[in-house]
Design a protein around this nucleic acid. Structure first.
Lengths: 197, 197
DNA sequence: GTCTATAGGCGGATAGAC
DNA sequence: GTCTATCCGCCTATAGAC
């Protein structure tokens, strides 16, 4: 029971840390700032966590594992490569809009992870990119996609959904559904009306 | 003469600061770090600059003004909206590949600007986005572009070229020319071969 | 214009009472 | 588990000798 309460308390602290790190950046955010949000003195935080960077680790790796888990599911789908890429774009937008603080921290503050976690994190991310690029490569070979460099295509897609993380706030004028539809339209079909392959 | 030398020295310090801020982040980068790169003691830097945030300001506003200046030129071009948007995409890629540290800092560290510079910077950026979105809006009205939300289109385009800033290193396997061509292909024509408007 | 020395503040984290 | 008090280090920036 004590462990469950303690676990909840820790999760609450991690949640607040995610929002704080997103707003001010990991380095500029102090444990005193975090304590104020949580409603305790700074020293009390250390009854739940061991260090500031433990918070960063929890956030970054939770996000990383969520992305990898969805990628694995997508790879096993029975579908065309275009459908798989489309599903991954939707997945990215969904994760971002549902867990925006954590995603933002994982995207922008990961470089402050201390070793060996930094190496582990970049390794996971590189592996994710490699597997995603392989799907695009196969889509090109299958004639579904234009013959572009798969890495360029990958990063263009990933970056194009990442802006949502910077910009999106719940309750903003544009709904997640419109977001999803229009971003997909541009990336999959292109911006211009009349296309000539 | 003394002023010219001093000016060059200051520019050198700003250049080194840009690289340092990009690598470590503005808050995590110390004046001692910067001094070591420049080859002096930290206190000596203050003969050339007034404060750490002056360096951040110089970098952020130089980049902002470069973007705005190119946008103004593009607005005055005699060309279709598709050609103008294409020109702006090329301009973004060119600025990023030529001045990557400064662009990276302006994109990622601007939030550490102290007021009133923070407000001024965000105002300049919002104005840039408004004018760029207007070009897309007109392109949609002219039937050149698909009927998507202009803001979504804008941010998707801007984000898609921004990844270059995170990823690009001079001398990497992919050339700026290939970058430009493939990113344009995806954003303007779309990833899939057979498009059905 | 560069140096050494240092002021003055805030950072993460710990000790120990309750 | 939370508090107060505090350690100790690093931070930006300044003072003043050379």
């Amino acid at each position: 029971m004590a462990r469950i309460l303690s676990g909840n308390r820790k999760q609450f602290i991690i949640e607040e840390a995610g929002q704080l790190f997103r707003e001010k950046g990991y380095t500029a955010a102090s444990m005193r700032d975090l304590a104020e949000r949580v409603g305790v003195e700074a020293a009390s935080l250390y009854n739940h966590i061991k260090s500031k960077d433990e918070l960063l680790r929890e956030i970054c790796f939770r996000v990383a594992h969520e992305y990898v888990s969805h990628l694995s599911q997508t790879e096993q789908m029975e579908a065309t490569y275009a459908e798989k890429v489309r599903a991954l774009l939707r997945m990215h937008i969904a994760i971002i809009t549902h867990d925006i603080s954590a995603v933002s921290v994982a995207n922008n503050e990961w470089k402050h992870l201390p070793e060996p976690y930094l190496s582990e994190f970049t390794h996971i991310r590189r592996d994710y990119e490699r597997r995603f690029a392989a799907l695009i490569q196969k889509g090109i070979e299958a004639g579904e996609f234009r013959p572009v460099n798969p890495k360029i295509a990958l990063f263009t897609l990933l970056a194009a959904v990442r802006w949502v993380e910077i910009w999106y706030k719940p309750g903003r004028e544009i709904s997640p559904q419109t977001l999803e539809r229009d971003i997909e339209t541009i990336l999959i079909h292109g911006l211009t009306q009349a296309t000539a392959p």
